[in-house]
Design a protein around this nucleic acid. Structure first.
Lengths: 209, 209
DNA sequence: AAATATTTGTTGCATTTGCAACATTTTACA
DNA sequence: TGTAAAATGTTGCAAATGCAACAAATATTT
């Protein structure tokens, strides 16, 4: 995963942040940070920790829009946060740097040495964003819970020759990510075990096919 | 929807395209264009017409990943096309301009007057991309077909005071977009009509609530 | 304008899924 | 470290959904 300031040395990062009118804020765990942020366009970069974008509809159903970890970005470029009832909750102690979107093309920054690298990183990051959305859509459009799980397993193992992997979230969160009922998902996983497709040990899953 | 070359005059567009080693190709309807394209990183801009990115899994199920219309972009920035079996089909006569991703930050282009506008457009376009993915995810994570439809209807009317709108695709494609069985969706629409929530006339839908 | 292809509407039926309501285990934290 | 909170596993049942197989209506093409 790309980091917004990767390949830029510390001195230049400081310079960029100053020109971008960067503002760094620390939060405790479980804080709704968007209530403190002005609605102006901004890009938020997670320096450390992680947050979750959660939308709540009129029925009170919560959906996780996005999990955002260290080095990743969120904000009005990538999500129209004012569009509906979205809250952004820190999952742990988290430090976030906000930069003003409109400063990205101000006169001063364009002359900066590391500007091009910065822009390249930003574009790459946005591209990765789209890619991860596409992955989720690919999973969500599978017809059955079983298909969703098997495709998810396939994606987890496709980069390695390994048949084992550990899911990077709780089963509760996985069910949410795949938009299926948690208990129904657990049932399906049981069937997959019974039928000899997989073996599990906590969050470690081994494919037997 | 942002256009990659908006706010740039024709002369400068030509200049940019030349520096970016742009390559313009015309296609007939129903052509699989990706079979002709080298796998190198590129951004494709639809000058006119439209295309559809379709992924086919091992079961032969087809999913529409994306509908791309005039002025919009696609390509390796926003989707790792080599990742799985994705084909890109023109829906009508279509003209596409390909630019090399790596040229986006070459030395010559940085000195160009309209470069900043170009970059701004590109970032905005990618942001809109993410946004539209988020919208689809929002719909796909709704539990029932009815919820998906009602949310879709809400999104169609939220920008206007109007209670009527025309869906911009066929019902077959809408079912695909919402990842539900077409006949089950038609059934649900019938129920919504019976229960007095909506009225329809072809693809024109009027909300009665 | 006729022929062909595509879209739309309908319905019975089997399957899948969500929901509720638990017991049990694991994790967080005061 | 003890207690509260969260996560996990299980199952019966009702509701929602996919599927198949049509007929009818629209579009598209030649």
């Amino acid at each position: 995963m790309t980091n917004l300031f990767q390949n830029i040395n510390d001195k230049n990062i400081e310079k960029l942040k100053r020109i971008l009118k960067a503002d760094t804020v620390r939060y405790q765990k479980n804080v709704n940070i968007l209530s403190n942020v002005n609605p102006e366009d901004f890009i938020a970069i997670i320096d450390s920790g992680s947050v979750q974008l959660i939308s709540t509809d009129y029925d009170g159903n919560e959906r996780i829009i996005e999990d955002i970890g260290e080095g990743e970005i969120f904000g009005s470029i990538s999500y129209s946060l004012n569009n509906e009832d979205v809250s952004c909750i820190t999952k742990e102690k988290t430090q976030i740097t906000y930069i003003q979107y409109k400063q990205i093309t101000n006169d001063e920054i364009i002359k900066t040495d590391s500007y091009i690298i910065f822009i390249k990183n930003l574009i790459k990051l946005l591209g990765e964003h789209v890619s991860s959305k596409n992955t989720r859509i690919e999973l969500l459009t599978k017809k059955t819970t079983r298909d969703k799980l098997l495709e998810y397993f396939r994606l987890q193992t496709q980069t390695t020759t390994n048949k084992s992997f550990t899911i990077p979230m709780s089963y509760t969160e996985l069910a949410n990510y795949l938009a299926v009922d948690r208990s129904a998902m657990t049932r399906e996983i049981s069937y997959l075990k019974e039928e000899g497709f997989i073996r599990t040990n906590g969050r470690k899953i081994t494919l037997l096919y």
